[in-house]
Simulated scan of single mutants.
Amino acid sequence: MQPTRVVDHRSSRAWADNAVRLIEADARRSADTHLLRIELPEWSRWVDDDGTPTGVDLYLKDESTHPTGSLKHRLARSLFLYAICNGWVTQDTTVIEASSGSTAVSEAYFAKLIGVPFIAVMTSSTSPSKTALIEREGGRCHFVDKPGEVYAEALRLEAELGGHFIDQFTMAERATDWRGNNNIAESIFAQLADEDHPIPTWIVVGAGTGGTSATLGRYLRYRRHPTWLAVVDPENSVFLPAYETADGTITSDIGSRIEGIGRPRVEPSFVSQVIDRMIGVPDEASIATARCISNRLGRRVGGSTGTNLWGALGIVAEMVADRHAGSVVSLLCDSGDRYGNTYFDDTWLAAQGFDLAGATVVLDEFFESGIWTVD
């Protein structure tokens, strides 16, 4: 009889237990993000036939207050927990991502928190300000020449280093517990509990990985909430045409100019079946709305927040016109301070050929009368 063979990996559990503890402790310290009520003019209020005052309320979930300053902090936390609990990340694992944006910043933060190396693969044209944010959190930036090379290079580094490609665009919808566990959907509904309209009529979000819209859409169905989910999409992104045609193979050679949302391919985490409406938003409208809302809030918001609000304001106007009382919720994704040299710089806008006049007229008329003059 052959001797019994035992291969024991129990020693790795102690590190994993501590890594999960550190991440959960960070979540408790961070508490939750604020739900801001955006003041709308008097035209948003009316009296029902029975004499009850009512109207439409607009809210912004302020994700910029996370420790790394953006909505992607939630995603990075979920990705790390998922990878650790699956045994893919251990104490000696180098974590690799194909990103130069907010996700990489947040992932670098969590890698430093649990004591593992982090590499962000990005194009050599990435601005120094972006790489500085990643390096400030302890990450290392690895450059390639073309945007299409980042995925293959991340996989090559994974094999070469024995690391783990954490792959936000594939894992985003899998890593988040969409049934609850204080995900963004559960948080929104908890914070609305004592408002005039605690069950929102619409939730409006953008899509980068698609993970946020997948989480929200699944949660709405799981809890059987009568809430519609709208996803806004910037120019040059293929999510909207893919949704319209049911063709997930559509690609584009041009990238989105609104950072954080829009993709040149349909990412695996984009679950179109849970979306009730998609809205295409011109880039000039995204930037004009970001500037408009920044002025109203007294602080800057990013371009993707502008995209969200352009879609949300149109829905508010639709509800007011129909005398459909209720609430609309969208996301403040990150601070506009990151975009002082781009979206808030008139010289940069002119160099890019952006003219915000048309979109600004639409916004001014909306806040004056509640009318949305967009076809």
Rank of each mutant, 00 (worst) to 15 (best):
Arg5Met: 12
Val6Ile: 15
Val7Cys: 07
Ser12Gly: 13
Ala14Cys: 12
Leu22Lys: 14
Ile23Gly: 01
Ser30Pro: 01
Asp32Asn: 11
His34Val: 08
Arg37Ile: 03
Ile38Glu: 07
Ile38Cys: 09
Leu40Arg: 06
Pro41Asn: 14
Pro41Trp: 15
Arg45Phe: 08
Trp46Ile: 08
Thr52Ile: 12
Tyr59Gln: 03
Ser64Leu: 07
His66Pro: 01
Arg74Lys: 14
Ala76Pro: 07
Ser78Trp: 08
Ala83Ile: 06
Asn86Glu: 13
Gly87Ser: 08
Val95Arg: 03
Glu97Met: 10
Val105Cys: 01
Tyr109Val: 06
Ala111Lys: 07
Val116Asp: 01
Ile119Val: 11
Val121Lys: 03
Thr123Ser: 14
Ser125Cys: 09
Thr126Ser: 13
Pro128Asn: 07
Ser129Ile: 14
Ala132Arg: 13
Glu137Ser: 04
Glu137Gly: 02
Gly138Ile: 11
Gly139Pro: 00
Gly139Val: 00
His142Ser: 15
Phe143Trp: 09
Val144Ile: 12
Lys146Gln: 15
Gly148Ser: 14
Gly148Asn: 15
Val150Ile: 15
Ala152His: 10
Arg156Leu: 04
Arg156Pro: 01
Glu158Trp: 10
Gly163Ser: 14
Gln168Gly: 04
Phe169Asn: 04
Phe169Pro: 02
Thr176Lys: 06
Arg179Trp: 07
Asn183Phe: 03
Asn183Arg: 02
Ile188Leu: 07
Leu192Gln: 05
Pro198Leu: 12
Val204His: 05
Val205Gly: 00
Val205Phe: 02
Gly211Asp: 00
Gly211His: 01
Gly211Thr: 00
Leu216Tyr: 04
Leu216Cys: 06
Leu216Gly: 00
Tyr219Pro: 01
Tyr222Glu: 06
Thr227Ala: 00
Val232His: 02
Pro234His: 09
Phe239Arg: 02
Glu244Trp: 04
Ile254Gln: 13
Gly255Lys: 07
Arg257Gly: 10
Gly260Glu: 04
Ile261Gly: 00
Gly262Trp: 06
Gly262Cys: 07
Gly262Phe: 07
Glu267Phe: 14
Glu267Lys: 11
Phe270Thr: 01
Val271Thr: 12
Gln273Lys: 11
Asp276Asn: 07
Met278Ser: 05
Asp283Tyr: 05
Ala285Asn: 14
Ser286Gly: 11
Ile287Val: 11
Ala288Asp: 04
Ala288Phe: 04
Thr289Ser: 09
Ala290Trp: 12
Ser294Gln: 08
Asn295Glu: 13
Leu297Phe: 12
Gly298Tyr: 09
Gly298Pro: 03
Gly298Asn: 05
Arg300Asp: 03
Ser304Tyr: 10
Asn308Trp: 02
Trp310Tyr: 10
Leu313Glu: 00
Ile315Tyr: 00
Ile315His: 01
Ile315Ala: 00
Val316Gln: 05
Met319Gln: 09
Ala321Ile: 10
Ala321His: 15
His324Ala: 15
Ala325Arg: 07
Gly326Cys: 06
Ser327Pro: 07
Val328Tyr: 03
Val328Lys: 02
Asp346Gln: 12
Asp346Gly: 05
Ala357Thr: 15
Ala357Lys: 13
Gly358Ile: 04
Ala359Val: 06
Thr360Pro: 07
Leu363Asp: 02
Asp364Gln: 14
Glu365Cys: 09
Asp375Asn: 11
